[in-house]
Design a protein around this nucleic acid. Structure first.
Lengths: 144, 144
DNA sequence: ATAAAATACGGTGGAGAACCGGGATATACT
DNA sequence: AGTATATCCCGGTTCTCCACCGTATTTTAT
């Protein structure tokens, strides 16, 4: 439903890491932030979250930076979003419903949420890259 | 994804109105709030939003209150939620993406959102009532 | 007229989003 | 060994929205 700035930043950053995945060299926060127009001090926090979730690995010190922990086709968008968005402690699922109506509502809501997650599960970082690349191809065709 | 307190309150209130729909008598805020344990001054705002969306009708003055604008089987959950949640002025759809990556991300996100909305569209207030009633039946069976 | 209801307007406290800074820590290179 | 370069960790700030409360004003049935 709501695409928060947080999730979009994280996706953009991981997409950037996916682009440089074959080079086997770590990317620094500064580079990612500059490339995708993301405030670097904020991106730092997001990358920390993604690292704790095991989606990326970090190397400290000079020549350090971040790399994907897995291949781009093994990381689904659902993992990314739940890593970033799933840190809030008391979500709607945890505060339980007291009435029968409340339970029924939550069931339907959960079904809707699952439908959305299913979509995010079928897309990987690789898929996004290919989607973007074919789009770029199209823009080029129109330009010529 | 996130079931806000707002949407749940609105659904509970409309469910209450649906229960009394056949009586053709308006329900007051106080009654709904007391029945569903909703703070009445807050519910008042939500009902105002639902009225402006044309989902309920209000009658002012003594013996006044609220009634559904349509039959319970003609009101989908998607209408209710989008009425309540869709009031925020600058959502993610309105701040446009500048990069190619951003556009691709938004497309996937929109696909996920549509999947969730599709679920909410296939349920009506009537469906929720029946779901709850059959659940109550089950509880009774276990009790005996 | 009077009481009962919605309506309009304003305000408060808390939480999370979206940032910014400073210092501690780890690492490569010379 | 020393220094530059990076992450990491601890804060704080501003802003917006949520959830909620109070006080009036307007409308309507009796």
């Amino acid at each position: 439903m709501e695409l928060s700035c947080k999730s979009e930043y994280a996706l953009l950053a991981l997409l950037e890491l996916a682009d440089h995945y074959s080079s086997n060299e770590p990317l620094q926060i500064r580079q990612i932030a500059a490339e995708q127009n993301i405030p670097d001090r904020y991106l730092e926090q997001l990358l920390a979250t993604l690292r704790r979730s095991g989606l990326i690995r970090s190397q400290r010190g000079a020549k350090g930076g971040y790399v994907l922990a897995r291949e781009p086709w093994k990381i689904t968008l659902s993992e990314i979003v739940s890593s970033i968005e799933g840190t809030d402690t008391h979500s709607s699922e945890y505060r339980e419903a007291k009435s029968l109506e409340g339970m029924v509502i939550r069931e339907v809501w959960q079904e809707a949420g699952q439908a959305a997650i299913a979509v995010l599960q079928k897309y990987t970082l690789q898929d996004l890259m290919e989607k973007r690349n074919s789009r770029q191809q199209l823009d080029l065709m129109y330009y010529i």
